[in-house]
Write a protein that binds this DNA or RNA. Structure first.
Lengths: 339, 339
DNA sequence: CACTATGCTGCAAACGTTGTCATCCACACC
DNA sequence: GGTGTGGATGACAACGTTTGCAGCATAGTG
């Protein structure tokens, strides 16, 4: 192993100078700096991370905590965060808490000291997590807490765009199929819907559904019963489940009901019909989180913009909007459709 | 910060005893051990990772290198690897090389020294990677190299199962839509198909397609032209693309053509028709890779089994198998369908 | 010329842990 | 009772880096 001592000997300087030449180049004379660098390159010197951490306290690594790495949403965030960390010459510890609040807190106690900061993505137990982290830099993604920097999505703008789109198509009664109550994004979306309400549009917000395919299946019949001609769902998976259940009931999307998803995860373009959805640049979110971790001034960045991606799941309502469907004796058709 | 010294003072022993009591409990007398543990708990002592690494050389962290973290395949492997690492009390550095061989090699030089070993998943430049890693423990996933432990998938068994299934349904001419030439999995699958061939079944292997939706779209017309009544694809995304293109041509799946995907990524169950596919337990793969990293005897584990998941994309061939379709003037219907 | 200011470099002390070696004590055996 | 044995513990030296402090030029100023 090549150490500072070897480089120092080769360059004819002291180890202090070597350390400085590489870490604080402007604190050493140009010609010395060059000699040291040449020697370091020559010998293939790589500073020992552990020694550096021990002495200086900086680890050169960040942590990313997500509830489920297999979820394409978090995978995309992780990808962005990883890329940004690498660009900064840092590593990224990725931890999957398996949606388990206890594990989240536990894992943080061992993770935190090994990092220069942690990105908490959709935390399931923020209070405990923040307590564990103490003074260490944290950035929240998809969550809010006093005085903690966060990367936020402009959910209100997203809802506004979706509503505008559906209204322009002629829809006047629009349902929202919401996600888990604990979800900050869900709360923001509901608030956004309320704020964006048009005089001539009714918004029916339906309550907590699981943010997976099953959630959409469970919500479908409620949506039909609500009399809405269009629906916005918590995420694309919910939209997929919803569409599946609607079709099983003989309803057509977008003929009988228009559907707007959220996230533009890549399933949105694969299913039939391809989903109109709200796109968030998740990788940018990951990148922004890491950047915020470094910018220790604790300033929260501007919320990330949300774009509407129009595909085939939205269309004008049929002349007699969903009347036939709502008139049908829905209950008898709903085995296992308990919301 | 609480150090061994603090614990030692509190327990009335020397720092050596503290270190031993926690790291090698059987080398210290039971009552002393308990006293030390009590003191450590009391003070909330957490060994400093950096100091430990510096002195002992073991980092307590592993590395995982994947070409694309946003790909659900790799995300699943990462999830498994992460879980196993955590169970071992270790961290996991996840690195996304963005399918870039140069980046792969570069990233390894800085990653390797910070870990106790690296899992290389679907490496894009194995030789360089192995050169960089030198003597450090490595495990390959989806790849083979002399003397390097690897986690393998029993692709031959998978192909055999798919063939059996299709043959039992009555198919006698079956196409395989292959992935990139550089893919080890693709080579194994082709070999498996050749080995499993039945006397009464023709297998038509079609050449390199991109392992994404577009690859399937590109392959569709070749498959139809081949006269096959069933097709096995490199992965589920290819299957999705294939199905989409077939339907655009007015063909029915599974009516005119049965389709078997690979990987059972979660899109398989979401698309219409739901895909019959070969399931590999990707999380188990990730876990196995980390385990292998630790088992320094370098023994490669038994190949992972592959299960057939039967859904709606496979059915018996129609009496006049795809005759109408092949007879149709396909070219005129294929704008932009260049394979 | 003396004195100060400035810039560069070297010395040496940490950082907190692990592991080697030596010490010590108790016990058993001769 | 002396000696050997072995288990338990303590003292201390690393591991490789960073950094405060001091030293030493050189240059600038009175």
């Amino acid at each position: 192993m090549v150490t500072v001592h070897d480089v120092a000997r080769a360059a004819g300087v002291s180890i202090s100078t070597v350390s400085r030449a590489l870490a604080a180049p402007d604190r050493v004379a140009p010609h010395t700096r060059e000699r040291v660098r040449a020697a370091a390159d020559e010998l293939g010197y790589r500073p020992n991370r552990a020694a550096s951490v021990l002495r200086a306290g900086r680890t050169g690594a960040y942590g990313l905590v997500v509830p489920d790495l297999a979820n394409p949403y978090f995978a995309a965030v992780a990808k962005g965060a990883q890329a940004r960390a690498r660009e900064r010459g840092a590593g990224l510890f990725v931890v999957d808490t398996e949606e388990n609040p206890d594990l989240e807190a536990e894992v943080l106690t061992s993770l935190a000291p090994q990092t220069d900061g942690v990105v908490l993505c959709s935390p399931r137990a923020v209070d405990r997590a923040l307590a564990v982290l103490g003074e260490r830099p944290v950035v929240l993604v998809n969550h809010e807490a006093d005085g903690v920097p966060a990367v936020e999505t402009d959910h209100a703008a997203g809802m506004r765009r979706a509503l505008e789109h559906l209204r322009a198509l002629g829809h006047r009664r629009i349902a929202y199929v919401g996600g888990p109550e604990s979800s900050w994004s869900d709360r923001r979306r509901r608030a956004g819907l309320a704020a964006a309400a048009y005089d001539d549009v009714d918004v029916v917000a339906l309550g907590a559904f699981r943010p997976q395919v099953e959630g959409g299946q469970a919500a479908a019949d409620l949506v039909v019963a609500s009399g809405a001609t269009a629906v916005i769902t918590f995420n694309d998976l919910v939209a997929v489940g919803l569409v599946g259940r609607l079709r099983a009931r003989g309803l057509d999307v977008p003929g009988d009901l228009s559907v707007v998803g959220c996230d533009d995860s890549y399933v949105a373009s694969l299913v039939t019909p391809a989903l109109t959805t709200l796109r968030v640049d998740l990788r940018a979110m990951g990148r922004a989180a890491v950047d915020l971790l470094v910018a220790d001034d604790g300033v929260t960045a501007a919320p990330l913009d949300v774009d509407l991606v129009v595909r085939s799941s939205t269309a004008p309502p049929t002349p007699a909007p969903a009347a036939a469907a709502t008139a049908a004796p829905t209950e008898t058709l709903v085995p296992g459709g308990t919301p």
